[in-house]
Design a protein around this nucleic acid. Structure first.
Lengths: 148, 148
DNA sequence: GTATCTGCAAAACATTTGCAATTCT
DNA sequence: AGAATTGCAAATGTTTTGCAGATAC
């Protein structure tokens, strides 16, 4: 199932499937992640939703995300040294983090090498490939400033 | 230069080469990382050295590590959700983190794909490949406990 | 009415900052 | 003496925990 096909009903269904009761808070949090595809931090989610749900607390965002990670609805991305980021659980892909704007982009790259279950006797359950650098947009900004 | 060849003189030389004055604290911190090859956290380094240098403060460990990262002596590993880890700056390689014992191992794997300087218009300056799972030792422990 | 869920307040960590005391040259 | 370095104490920021009130079934 592609992200684009996700609507509110799918979100409800996904939560129920994984044994998570679909409260307003949980639906909105998951919806935010699915719709924005921006690999948000807890803070980004909280700030985006506090207008819509004025009573929302950060604790609830933390609780919800932790539960969804445990139930394989979400994936924790360890790519940012300052805060954990979250993404919908899916086939692992490559992430690129821009060190100027902080944005994280998805890359559709083949990583067959890491799909083996055992490498050198160690059991590989999950892998993550992170690229760091400067994104297209920030490169453009920079060359504009330099006048070239 | 391989890790094994590193002795106290090489550590001194490396620091001076990068414009870092080799104080006792700096030498001991770098020596710890080189000798142990355990991709330590600030805490691991501090606890290991506070016996030897009783006046050592965690601030100094932080300061030292940040400076060495800036001067390309060390590399920050963003693989652990709880704390940043440090490794000697070298050809990037693959890391495996065991979710049972927390240990981080090096893998010598080829990652040619990520060595391109530009991917889809974004400038790639650095990449990191992290594998997560259960290491050989913990798998053995586990099968012993299960009696098989 | 009992379970679960939410959210406040406080605690627990990791990390940074300001600054005064110390050390090196 | 003057510059760099160290380390304490406090601040900042992220995440977790304890608990009381609210909500759902």
């Amino acid at each position: 199932m592609k992200n684009k096909d996700f609507d509110i009903n799918d979100i409800n269904k996904l939560l129920i499937d994984r044994g998570i009761r679909p409260s307003i808070q949980r639906i909105k949090i998951l919806e935010y992640i699915v719709k924005n595809k921006n690999h948000p931090t807890v803070d980004m989610i909280f700030n985006a939703l506090k207008g819509e749900i004025p009573t929302l607390s950060k604790t609830t965002v933390y609780n919800t995300l932790n539960e969804m990670v445990k139930k394989d609805v979400l994936l924790e991305l360890i790519i940012d040294e300052n805060a954990v980021r979250y993404d919908l659980y899916m086939e692992p892909h490559v992430h690129f983090k821009c060190r100027i704007c902080g944005e994280i982009y998805d890359y559709d790259m083949d990583c067959e090498i890491f799909k083996k279950k055992k490498i050198k006797g160690n059991l590989v359950e999950r892998y993550s490939v992170n690229l760091y650098g400067i994104c297209k947009n920030c490169l453009n900004e920079r060359s504009k400033k330099n006048g070239d």
